[in-house]
Amino acid sequence: MKLSREEVLHIARLARVALTEAEITRFSEQLSNLLEHFEILQEVDTEDVPPTAQSVALKSVMRDDEVAPSLPPDDILANAPKREGDCFRVRAVLE
């Protein structure tokens, strides 16, 4: 299992993380090594074994839809890098 430079760049784009040249080289090696180790899973017979998403047997936990106070907008927006009125300010999505 060897990850090419192109594959690393493809994953980085999916994850929306920019990488430096050094990181591209390093991750290509390190991720390849890890995936090589992880290939031992292929020796396990999982025919008819259901996947486990989490270990608690709870299903569809619902609560009553009760009206309760939310945090004030000023509290929420206090950590916003950019704010406009009661909104988060973002860069234009469409140019």
Partner: peptide
């Protein structure tokens, strides 16, 4: 990066679902 790879199209079943099945075992 590792997680994005394991969840990406074409690899999801081979890595992520496989790991979830071994988790069951």
């Amino acid at each position: 990066m590792l997680g994005t790879y394991a969840l990406s199209a074409g690899y999801y079943d081979a890595w992520y679902v496989k790991a979830q099945k071994v988790r069951t075992l």
